[in-house]
Amino acid sequence: MSSNSHAHDSSTYYVPHSSPWPIVGSIALFCVMWGAVTFLNDWGSAWSFLPGALLLLVLFFGWFATVINENQAGLFNAQVDKSFRMGMMWFIISEVMFFAAFFGALFYARELSVPWIGGEGVKVFNKLLLWQDFAPTWPTNGPDRLGGHADGSFETIAAFSLPAINTALLLTSGVTITIAHHALRAGHRTQLSIFLAATWILGFIFVYLQGTEYHEAYTELGLKLSTGIYGSTFFMLTGFHGLHVTIGAIMLTVIWLRCLRGHFTAKNHFAFEAVAWYWHFVDVVWLILFVFVYWI
């Protein structure tokens, strides 16, 4: 907490006077990006990610600790709280649009590019001249049958196997976090801890099961990131979703630890609600994903 906050009382909007975290964060992100460039351009090994990753850890611990301490010190009034809430809401909307780009790619491929490659409508010359043998069905890895087994074939994961179990896990976790929220508002701290723990445990089980599904896809089904447009959309959508579940589960673990330390009150628990919103967001993305990637 900065030394100049002594004069602050919560009747006015809290404006921090100076902070090292923005510049630390910018340098951290630059190092992450530079590490990625170094790795992808074969200028160096995967170790090039290390400085950025370490700095990012420093950033997260430092920045969040600062804000948590300010909150515990009572510097935030209701208006500050509202700013945080609106900020989180718009952040989630930006995340929705990030996923929208990949869903857009999926719908475009299924409804337009694959039929066109197969010679639909005015694109008939694709069929006549370029790819006579290509049948435009879904799933597909394209006329060149990229990736897949040695013969170019591949299998997909049935919706009502592991993915259905994962759906049940995520939906259950949506219920448990809601119960935890009600417990927090009612002041039932034990119930809060138990149901919050259940939520993050369900989250990590989901990630583990996704891992086994990926393993099966790669080793047995011939379904890889390089398996044409199906593999591309499948792994990018489920992969980015899995990444968000992992981040969400880590966030849940953090607020669970904070609950154990006695943070949050029935009226003041923005961080809890922000994580809950985020968790519902990954839940909803999964439902859309389950329907359009796995099911139909």
């Binding site: 790619a105 475009y108 491929a109 337009l112 590019s113 694959v114 066109w116 490659i117 597909t140 890895n141 394209g142 006329p143 060149d144 990229l146 990736g147 890889k224 990131l225 390089s226 044409g228 447009i229 199906y230 593999g231 591309s232 959309t233 792994f235 990018m236």
Partner: peptide, 13 residues
């Protein structure tokens, strides 16, 4: 990473 979003050979465009 070998995806085919923008390659017709793999069904993209």
């Amino acid at each position: 990473f070998g995806t085919s979003f923008f390659s017709a050979a793999g069904g993209g465009d």
